[in-house]
Each structure stands twice: as structure tokens, then as C-alpha cells.
Simulated scan of single mutants.
Amino acid sequence: MASASGYYLPHQARWPIIGSIGLTLFLGGFGAMLIGSGAGPFFMVLGLLTVLGMMAGWFGEVINEGLNGLYDAQVERSFRWGMIWFIASEVMFFAAFFGSLFYVRMYAVPWLGGEGTTGVGAFTHLLWPDYAPEWPTNGPAHIGGEFEPMEPWGLPALNTLILLSSGATVTWAHWGLLKNDRSQFVKGLIATIALGFLFVGFQAYEYYHAYTEMGLTLGAGIYGSTFFMLTGFHGFHVTIGTIFLAVVLLRALRGHFDAEHHFAFEAAAWYWHFVDVVWLGLFIFVYWL
């Protein structure tokens, strides 16, 4: 374990191999489902349950080791750097989707409309002479079907207010913890969690409205696919972040944190602020512009 004079080496753990098995089952089951295998959903569920069990067991072990004082300052730094690199990987994940949206809007759509005298744009007008290179688009020959684009100033604007408010409440909770005001800390966490679930609920309603009344689906051309990929993955991250904060709340109610030792909460707060920033980009570039 940790020592004052040596480099920290984690003890042997069974959790990594269990997590690998769970991910293999989950992805294998997903692939089998895509090719029509009846066993696919079973292995997907089995893999998901294995991964969730791994997470509960591994996180619980780390929590107990921390509470028992087995981690020194170096281990604390390793946790912080691990969370920083994790969020950096998430930045790259969303950057890829924002990049695809930029490429489609700024290059692919104009080319399909015949822009450019060389390369792709020189020939596409022969294939689709009536195509209007406007965004949002349902593609040449209306391959994406008829749909209505999502307007920004309804539920999306309300969800923006909700998520920005949740950023304020989690910061308020942090202030309470730093001054050892457990009541403020817990109230701030409860408010943030409630706002997170409210955001997800409104987004689910937005999706239902899009599918049932607007004709806006994943198959609605490149606009539909980029809209649901970006907002859907963000909604998934909000859900994960809300669960993260809920676990922190349960630990807070058991008195696990104080002004000096609360990295688990800080990690959740970092993640939550990251989710806030991503949503601002989504609101501007997916809904508004």
C-alpha cells in the first residue's frame, strides 16, 4: 500500500479482469443483436450487470481504503490526475462529434449543393440539381424525409437555465463543505441532483415530441443523426453525473467528507461543470445557429 518513503503500488485486484469480461460480454452481445442473434440482448444485459457489479465493488473498496487512512498525498494526487485525464478524454470525445457537425455544415452540405469548381462540388449538381444546400437539411432527394427542426427557445432554453442553475447549486454545496457547513453541503447536493433529473426528464419529453410530432428521428438525414448523437450522449453524461452526485450525497449523509478530505465530491463537481460547458456548446451550435 502507500508509504511515506516509497512509490505507491496498488495491491493485486480482481476488479479489472471482471470489468474486462463484462465489457466483452456487453459489446459482444450488442454486436450479436445487430446481426439478428436472439442471444444478443441476454449477453448485453449480463455484461452490463457485470460492469455495474465491478464498479460497485471496486469503488466500495477504494472508499473503504480511503476511510481507513491507507492513501497518502501521492495517491491523492494520482486520483486527481486520473480524473483530469478522464475529463480530457471526454473533451476529445465530444470534440469529435462537434467536429463532425462542423464538417457537415461547412463542407459536405455546400459540396452537395454544387459549391466549388473542382473536386466533389464540380459533379454533385449533375446528380442532385435541385438540392438546396441549407441547414438543417434532409439530404439530396429528401432522403431524410420531412421533419421540423428543433427550435431553441422552448425546452432547450429551459434546460439551459436548469443546467446552469445546477452548476451554481453544486458550487454552493462546495462552499458549504469548505466551511464545514454540512447542512448547506447536503442541501446543495440535493438541489443539484433534482435539477439533473429534471433536465433528463425534459430531454426525454423533447425526444418523444420530436419522434411523435415533428418527424425528427435518427433517420431524418444528417441533421437528425447529428442532433440525436450529440444531445443523446450529453444526456447520458448528465445521467451518469447525477448518479455520481447521488452516491456522493449518500456518503455525505454518512459523514464521509470534511473540509480537508473530499476529493470524491470534487471529482463529481468537476465532471458536472464539464457537462455544463458541453451543453452550452450544444445549445449554441446544435439548437441556435
Rank of each mutant, 00 (worst) to 15 (best):
L155R: 03
P156L: 15
P156D: 14
A157M: 09
L158M: 10
N159E: 10
L164Y: 00
L164D: 14
L164I: 15
S165K: 01
S166N: 04
S166H: 03
A168H: 00
V170N: 07
W172G: 02
H174F: 02
H174T: 13
G176Y: 15
L177T: 10
L177S: 08
K179A: 03
N180T: 09
N180M: 10
R182H: 12
K187A: 15
K187S: 12
G188N: 12
L189I: 08
I190A: 02
A191Q: 12
A191K: 09
A191E: 08
T192M: 02
I193G: 13
G196F: 00
L198G: 11
F199V: 07
V200K: 03
V200H: 03
V200C: 05
G201M: 15
Q203N: 11
Y207M: 09
Y207N: 03
A210M: 11
Y211F: 13
Y211M: 01
G215C: 06
L216A: 00
L218G: 11
L218F: 12
G219Q: 02
A220I: 09
G221I: 01
G221H: 00
Y223R: 08
Y223E: 08
Y223C: 06
F228H: 14
M229H: 04
M229V: 06
T231E: 03
H234A: 05
H234Y: 03
H234P: 07
F236G: 00
F236A: 00
F236V: 01
F236Y: 15
H237P: 02
V238I: 14
T239C: 12
I240K: 02
G241Q: 05
I243G: 10
I243D: 04
I243H: 07
L245E: 11
V247C: 07
V248Q: 03
L250S: 13
L250P: 01
R254W: 01
R254D: 03
G255E: 15
H256K: 05
F257Q: 10
D258N: 14
A259R: 14
A259T: 03
A259D: 12
H262N: 15
F263H: 13
A264G: 14
